[in-house]
Design a protein around this nucleic acid. Sequence first.
DNA 1: ATACCTGTTTCCCG
DNA 2: CCGGGAAACAGGTA
Length: 264
Amino acid sequence: MPELAEVAYSCSLWNEGLGIQIDQVITNPTSRVYRNENRKEFIQNLQGQTLSSSFTHGKQMLFSFTGNCWMGIHLGMTGSLAIEEKEYEPQKHDALLFRQPSQILVFRDPRQFGRLRLHLGKNKPKWWNDLPTSMLDKNFHSEILSNALSRHARRPIKALLLDQRYFPGMGNWMADEVLWRAKLKPSNLSGGISKIDEGRLFKQILFVVNGAIKSVGKYGGDPPTGWLFHTRWKDGLLCPKTKNPLIREQIGGRTTCWCPSLQK
DNA sequence: ATACCTGTTTCCCG
DNA sequence: CCGGGAAACAGGTA
């Protein structure tokens, strides 16, 4: 269920394993989450090491281990992290397990759109350092939005918000939430957004990102009451603001929920 | 059965 | 070469 806030929460679950040695590494022999990585290297390099720190950036997670090892996790569409009891038996879709003395850290992903990567070296991997400015960073300025809007003038604004090069961590429900709050129709072309609308849009990006981190990111579960999130997949589908019917349609390749009487 | 799905990559088109 | 859109990936759920 992973957008930036769920990723932050997932990552925090594994923090129980920080500072503890990993006695055994178990890799799923068939899961696609390994992509081009070599499973043996996970075992050879991580077994016996201690999980030393964790980081998130948008939908990306990075873990560091003693012995100059790093591991990246992307949760894809259905990935999740969990802590299980030490008696736990690996299940079909468990992609990676770290056995510690009193618990097991699990990364599972039934649909296998997630991704694991290993990096050896003193410093963080290049792919991590190359990530775009985080939406939680003070350097995430409105210029990033204006540049994206002008560069992709022919893309629907909904599709642009999902572009991880500009808005790392933004996912389908967050983008709908942002556009609903900014009162913008998701199919509007990016190039046609006025400066006034752009200002509102930027503010709502910050509002949704920070609000999600404070709620979902901290405690898991759902965003606060009153957010569009709670109505977006339910039938009946009334806008929390206008009480008018919501619409679901395919925009930018993704199902999009919006309120025609509110968003222009 | 059928049609979904909080994501990314690849391929094809203009 | 670029930007945009569709398809593909795979399994669980309604």
